[in-house]
Amino acid sequence: MRFDVITLFPELFAPLLSSGITRRAYESGAVDVRFANPRDFAVGNYKRVDDRPFGGGPGMVMMAEPLHACLSQVLSERAVGAPVVLFSPIGKPLTHAVVERMGSGEGAVLLCGRYEGIDQRIIDAHVTEQISLGDFVLSGGEIAAMALLDAVARLQPGVLNTEGSHQQDSFNPALGGLLDCPHYTRPDVWNGLAVPEVLMSGHHGHIERWRREQSLRITAMRRPELLVSARRAGLLSNRDEEFLRTLDSSP
């Protein structure tokens, strides 16, 4: 799949593409990441890409024409049409479901805004989806684009050391969309704190049930709305419900 990133700062992505486990996805071409800089499509000696907002106010706004020329060039080079994603505070939250959809398709064009934002006419003409990392504001869309690319890359076959490892991640449908359980490694006692005995027992059935109950417990404490969604989707068993009834924090 191909992701075209439209950004004024492509150099920010270098560590993402060359470091860590997920670099395998980029080096192998499983996730093909390309860059286009709107400044390369700007005119004049100063290659200006921003200007003052109409109506006054602080900050600058990215101009429509350089973005339009950049987007048009990128879209013309793609063999098939692609969604154009803008990272914006008004977008829908980036969730595991969005990552799975992006990770199983043909990719997308990721538009990284800067300054106070981009000219609304570009959004109206080109953008098909807006995504937000959360209820806060970043200096630009690059960090959000990196988060999406990293999440998509780790879903690709052969990227993680253990195939299917991502199936145990928080929010994954394999867990019913719940949070992951705690994890432990050697030594079995550290600073007087011992690993739970069940994890040392070798009894896979008991271990699996302990992990499920811990996942249920943590989700009830930290993100109870996920339990509500899982219940509505029929992802909780009768045994899950029995355990939840023992918790004071169950929604």
Rank of each mutant, 00 (worst) to 15 (best):
Y184V: 03
R211K: 08
Q214T: 00
L179T: 09
G234N: 06
H206G: 10
R186T: 05
I207H: 04
D180K: 05
V198E: 05
T219S: 00
R186V: 08
E197W: 08
E213L: 04
T185P: 10
V198M: 03
A194P: 15
L193V: 13
R209A: 07
V198L: 03
R223P: 05
V195D: 11
I218C: 08
A220Y: 06
R223D: 13
L193Y: 01
H204S: 14
L178S: 03
E225Q: 15
W210G: 01
E197P: 11
E225C: 03
R186G: 07
E225W: 01
H183F: 07
P196G: 06
G192I: 11
C181N: 11
G205H: 06
L216N: 02
R186S: 09
R212L: 05
P224C: 11
M200P: 02
P182Y: 00
L193I: 11
L235G: 01
A194Q: 07
R222G: 02
G205F: 00
R212Y: 01
M221P: 07
V198Q: 00
R231W: 12
C181M: 07
H183E: 12
N191L: 15
G192A: 08
H203P: 02
V189G: 05
S201P: 04
R186I: 10
L226N: 07
R209M: 06
R217Y: 08
R222C: 12
E213I: 01
A233M: 12
R232L: 13
V189H: 15
S201K: 05
N191T: 14
A233C: 12
R222V: 09
H183N: 11
L179W: 02
D180E: 15
R186Q: 14
A230Q: 09
S201I: 03
W210C: 03
R232E: 15
R217L: 07
L193N: 08
R209H: 10
G234Y: 15
P224M: 09
H206W: 08
E208Q: 10
V228R: 12
P182D: 04
Y184I: 08
L216F: 04
R209V: 02
I207C: 00
A230H: 13
G192P: 15
N191C: 14
R211G: 00
I207K: 04
G192Q: 12
R222E: 03
H183D: 10
D188T: 14
H183R: 14
A230T: 08
A194W: 10
E213K: 03
L179H: 09
H203V: 13
R211M: 00
R222D: 04
N191V: 15
M200N: 13
A220Q: 05
L199R: 06
P196C: 05
R209L: 04
R217W: 04
L226C: 05
T185Y: 14
G192R: 13
G202T: 06
H206C: 08
P187I: 09
A233K: 15
H183T: 10
L216S: 11
S215K: 03
G192W: 07
H203G: 11
S215Q: 07
L199M: 13
R222P: 02
M200H: 12
H204I: 06
L199H: 07
Y184R: 09
M221V: 13
S229Q: 11
E197D: 14
A194N: 08
L216C: 00
P182K: 00
